[in-house]
């Protein structure tokens, strides 16, 4: 294990600031790892003035998310100079390894200097995106991207984190996604600002579209608008221009209503909360370890409430002293 020396860190940040893609790529790797040097490194990029349009794309595995992004990129590139794509795939819980294959579907954009594609492993985290996602988006914002597309892993019912990190969420489903009951049950329908029924050239596409629309309209007041549903065929590009147009419109509409700003401040809140939890968990882990070696045999003489209280005081004292140094 090699930690970065201050000189290396400064050079990396300097290169990043002057627009080096290699430095960006390196920093994105670093912000996935857990370490104290990461905190110093990432802290130096904030505050970030540039706030890109962060579009989250989620949906079951094999729904065609990557293929749809491939098509959407052609349309969005007419509007935005620089776009980054973060494509998440699952990490194996058994081996810790990952096969990241999303960019195969987006290979057409490799020659485009305005598109940066990064394959990410979710590191076994539930929620559809990996740890460090806030810093990842922070880095891409600071680098100057005007749009960031986040593709979650395709798990189906647990990509709720995307709601928290994106300005707007597109849910991609396919024909035969399930009957109406399934549509109501699946939390996925609560996530989306927009929906696409991809592979719409397959049988049953219309029925799926109707069912999703019905589920989305259910329980909504007459005045409240249900999220739009689009039929697309990503492989042929069908419906993609319309979908892209609607995504941009919705982004502007929510921007005018102040919804995007509200979501962004929630994002900062979540980032800070995560950092606090991470920090506290680290402190707790080291105290528990110390406890285990020292007093493991004294179970009968311990008041757990008192002990926890004493440890909390100790942790805070140690932290205060560390700050003074």
């Amino acid at each position: 294990m090699r930690s970065l020396k201050k000189k290396e860190r400064d050079k990396l940040i300097g290169d990043f600031r002057s627009g080096s893609v290699a430095a960006l790529a390196r920093l994105l790797s670093l912000c996935e790892s857990e370490s104290r040097s990461r905190r110093d490194l990432m802290s130096s990029i904030y505050p970030v003035e540039n706030q890109p349009f962060v579009l989250g794309i989620t949906g079951p595995a094999g729904a065609g998310k990557s293929s749809l992004i491939n098509r959407l990129l052609f349309v969005f590139r007419k509007r935005f100079e620089r776009i980054a794509v973060l494509a998440f795939d699952p990490t194996s819980k058994l081996t810790g390894g990952a096969f990241l294959g999303d960019r195969v579907r987006m290979a057409e954009h490799i020659k485009d200097e305005g598109v940066y594609i990064r394959s990410m492993a979710d590191q076994g985290r539930a929620g559809g995106v990996g740890a460090g996602i806030h810093d990842t988006i922070g880095l891409l914002s600071a680098f100057g991207f005007e749009m960031v597309i986040v593709e979650t892993v395709g798990t189906g019912q647990s990509e709720s984190d995307v709601r928290l990190i994106a300005d707007l969420v597109l849910v991609v489903l396919t024909p035969g996604f399930g009957d109406e009951i399934q549509a109501m049950k699946a939390g996925i329908l609560e996530l989306g600002d927009l929906f696409a029924v991809n592979k719409a050239d397959q049988p049953d596409a219309e029925r799926t579209e109707t069912e999703i629309k019905a589920s989305l309209a259910l329980g909504r007041s007459q005045t409240a608008e249900a999220p739009p549903v689009f039929a697309t065929v990503a492989t042929q590009g069908r419906g993609v221009v319309e979908l892209a147009g609607c995504l941009l419109e919705k982004y502007q509409e929510l921007g005018r209503e102040g919804v995007i700003d509200a979501r962004r401040s929630k994002r900062v809140e979540a980032h800070v909360e995560e950092m606090l939890k991470e920090h506290c968990a680290m402190l707790v882990a080291s105290e528990i370890k110390a406890f285990r070696t020292k007093r493991a045999k004294a179970a009968g003489r311990i008041n757990p409430y008192r002990l926890a209280g004493a440890l909390i005081s100790k942790i805070f004292k140690a932290e205060n002293n560390a700050k003074k140094d």
Partner: peptide
């Protein structure tokens, strides 16, 4: 992957520049 690495696959027919 099974050896614990993150493997990024490019897909077929890539140029050296790609």
């Amino acid at each position: 992957r099974d050896a614990g690495m993150e493997v990024i696959y490019t897909g077929i027919r890539q140029s050296p520049e790609d």
